[in-house]
Design a protein around this nucleic acid. Structure first.
Lengths: 340, 340
DNA sequence: CTGAAAGCGCTTACAG
DNA sequence: CTGAAAGCGCTTACAG
């Protein structure tokens, strides 16, 4: 016997009454004699009775579980999102089942299958950097399970999402660089299949255009997310190529750190000669040397909002319309771009 | 209809056969006619049939879910542990349900209740810094649900655990400080109800004793985990008190950073005048200024080992004996204690 | 006020 | 080779 937990049947047997009565006594159902109720409650307490959530799920066709598919739990940003999701879910009586895709398409698809098999009431998804085929997600929608994207959404899918204003954040970052005098700004871009990265690139381009800075194709270099060594190499190569660089806008903080590292090794001064701004305001960007300017993203809030949206959809009688919740970013200027 | 997912019944109806037959066809049960099997499999594919894990759980009295209770998901160390748990669990066909206690006793107890109600097959627990009453954990053991502690274990409980050698790690850190010339070493300790903190303190005391350094009670200051401001204040107060300090051993990296901050603000040189060593080797301790020496803890490995242990217990026919798996730490010397 | 029955989705021992 | 029945733990419409 794996589970020593007591059931309604056990209580009924010991009290010589029916399961129906026990069930009703336990939930303050109207017509139950006080004597019976008391006896049942006392025994339930004594044996530490807990309703079997599995049985309830099967009967109610509702698991009270939210499934989460996330690229990696170890990224600071994502861990804050998880924290927000968990807090909100627990508050509303839901449990959270988490699968990390480790940035692999196949594992993402497997995770979604596992979560669907577990009959989660809703799915919160942030796609992997590899994901471009959307079949696995379309199946979810087709089968009628509510799904909400956060941060890394996909386009053309009938689902709500919570994102930050990546375009505006990137624009703010580049405008800031321009205003402190940068004219040759490199953009360390992320993978093009992620919308957040395309938006950030657009923000970069718009800012250049608005300030009439000529655009040089070779100033955009794509690096994978979370691979600061790629960023370091990219900047290193550009520096060696003899190109003039006086600013770097990295589409994530890790890439920004890679850039800083390359620039320091080349004995170039930050921010005097090259200024650097990252994206995401990683927890300790303020502690590195030089501290990294960044576009701050509200991860915890994103998690809570995503959870709220999915709970709304789960509890809606009829499929409401899709919402896109856009959270504001904030430019945090630190030493890496502080020239005054 | 919340879940549009197809059931065995649906397939049976469409094919005009019984549920039993569909069930058997789906799992390559011996005596099933190839024709039937093919028809069933084809339809299952077409409708994207997934076994209902809830129904299976109820029938098998086994959910294939591992419950995890963790102080906070946003700590780098814990997020690596989660990653390890998740990877190992997924590999073995298990899902992971995570609850964070946010370092609160009550929320920890609620989480365990929720997980027990969900009938998880086993529980992986790292207690909150507030936890000293163990009733909620004893219930788990009494009810026969396997439980394994990781990192923050409790004593006197019939459960396996995975920890690092906190005593030895602390000893190594302090010995290192002594060997580079420190004679007045402050210990920023953690809460005493956490065994890891008591062990670290013991390691500190043993090293002092072995090297015949006189011990001064006021050099041990307790700070809560994750509260670097407390650590900063503690060091600040000590410096102001006029006490001689030439070394700091912090029982976690955040406290170490707080110490660095206080020392820098007092214009005292690190590591020349005061050397600092932390504990846990936080992801980017190498990037702060000065980079922080630390005792490295293998979080990902801890997660995998904990998951392996719990799976072992879940699959054991009879209750095996309790194991304690101790992982090695490693001293990483960086600028904050590099006096060469 | 209480109980027997049916059903959520699945599996499997028992018949045929 | 296939089906009817029972059961996992719970709830609730239906009787009494």
């Amino acid at each position: 016997m794996k589970s020593g937990q007591v059931t309604i049947k056990d209580i009924a047997k010991e009290l010589n009454i029916s399961c129906s009565t026990v069930s009703r006594a336990l939930k303050d159902f109207p017509g139950i004699s006080p004597t019976t109720r008391k006896a049942v409650v006392a025994l339930a307490d004594k044996y530490n009775y807990r309703p079997n959530a599995i049985a309830l799920s099967l009967r109610n066709q509702k698991t009270n579980i939210i499934g989460v598919v996330i690229p990696e739990t170890v990224h600071f940003f994502f861990s804050t999102v998880i924290s927000g999701i968990e807090d909100e879910a627990m508050k509303e009586g839901y449990n959270v089942m988490i699968c990390q895709s480790n940035e692999r398409y196949e594992r993402e698809a497997d995770s979604i299958d596992a979560l669907m098999g577990a009959r989660v009431d809703g799915l919160l998804v942030s796609i992997s950097r590899e994901t471009s085929d959307l079949k696995h997600l379309e199946k979810v929608v087709a089968e009628g399970t509510p799904m909400v994207f956060f941060d890394r959404l996909v386009e053309g899918m009938n689902a709500s999402s919570v994102i930050v204003d990546d375009y505006q954040g990137a624009y703010d970052a580049v405008e800031h660089l321009i205003k402190i005098g940068c004219k040759h700004i490199v953009h360390l871009a992320g993978p093009d299949n992620l919308i957040i990265c395309r938006k950030r690139k657009e923000g970069y381009l718009s800012a250049l255009e608005d300030y009439e800075i000529t655009f040089d194709e070779s100033y955009i270099v794509e690096c994978r997310f979370g691979e600061e060594l790629e960023a370091e190499k990219a900047i290193n190569d550009l520096l060696k190529s003899g190109k003039t660089i006086d600013g770097v806008f990295a589409s994530n903080d890790m890439a920004g750190l890679g850039a800083i590292s390359a620039i320091k090794k080349a004995n170039i001064k930050i921010p005097e000669e090259i200024a650097v701004v990252g994206f995401s305001n990683w927890q300790f960007s303020s502690l590195v040397n030089p501290s990294l300017s960044s576009i701050s993203q509200p991860g915890y809030e994103m998690g809570r909002e995503a959870a709220k949206l999915i709970l709304e959809e789960i509890n809606a009688k009829e499929p409401g319309k899709r919402q896109v919740k856009i959270l504001d970013t904030e430019l945090i200027v630190r030493d890496s771009s502080n020239r005054q």
